[in-house]
Write a protein that binds this DNA or RNA. Sequence first.
DNA 1: CAATTAACTGGACTACAGTCCGTTTGTGTG
DNA 2: CACACAAACGGACTGTAGTCCAGTTAATTG
Lengths: 175, 175
Amino acid sequence: MLEAAAKLFREHGVEAVSMDAVAAAAGVGKGTLFRRFGDKSGLVAALLDDKERELQERILSGPPPLGPGALPGDRVRAFVAAYADYLFAHLDLLRVSETASPGARYRIGSYRFWHRHLSILLAEARPGADADYLAHALLAPLAAEHVTAVLRECDAARVAAGLAVLADALIADRP
Amino acid sequence: MLEAAAKLFREHGVEAVSMDAVAAAAGVGKGTLFRRFGDKSGLVAALLDDKERELQERILSGPPPLGPGALPGDRVRAFVAAYADYLFAHLDLLRVSETASPGARYRIGSYRFWHRHLSILLAEARPGADADYLAHALLAPLAAEHVTAVLRECDAARVAAGLAVLADALIADRP
DNA sequence: CAATTAACTGGACTACAGTCCGTTTGTGTG
DNA sequence: CACACAAACGGACTGTAGTCCAGTTAATTG
């Protein structure tokens, strides 16, 4: 099923492929497809699973500054840069997985992971601030739909640079 | 048509009302409804038109700091606060209007307005930075879907305060 | 006023996500 | 091996967004 889906997505683009088409190509009933993945965003999330896990591993136990060991501020910067790379590499899949159903982005487990990670780092880097909310705010411009829209006007390098400026601004101590 | 739509939305919630239902309630064919408003997000945008215009007027020619006359940094802060109020007041309508079709938020004219406004102010408040991108980034946590999701964990006051912190961080001069 | 043309209208129609249920397939038991 | 039962299956079915076109109304002109 995942192979068939990946093939169709590669050939026709993620948005253009219907769940019926995936089911047919996989030689499987529609019911089976939906029972297995819940909905289209679940199917796409399953395809992203490997890459996502890899990034999470690098955060949890990879070398600093992305992994543990660096200063919190540096880890935030490294996370934003690494997540932006991940985003640029899989933008169309991520967009579908985040927008298939309303609020999908915020319900899937990985969002919780990214948020928790940033929240802990920001609490250290910026004591006294509402790290929990700021983590959400920093994830907002990392939404696939937002980046997709912005990429129509700014190239990837500008987006990455701008995100770095934003991260810096959130980290730096206020006088 | 707008009256019928507003009534149904009030009674059953925006998401639960189908375009067929609006057409039927308005005593009009579905084709007419779609020709007039393009899609569901267009219909909802039409309902928000008044409120949106009012905020735009206050920005273009109202009293400072939201209107002209204040320092750019203060105007950015005032905009974020005023937009957050607007958002909280019409969250469900805005969410539908921004998510009805993919990328809808970034295509409608009002996004251009908010972006242009912020972009000009940020260019003054923070010379040398990529004000254009930063304006997009500051609008990202003001997306209705983002705020809706965050409101499940943080109350409106925390969101407003966090947005103010974010705006401050973007405005303050770096050493 | 009649004829011609342009613009508008309504609802049938298509495509798609997601659900439901009768049917098949596999598994454990006497 | 025969049977009962559970789990997995597939495709028909539903509801909705959005399209399309045949019919109707309104405007224009001789």
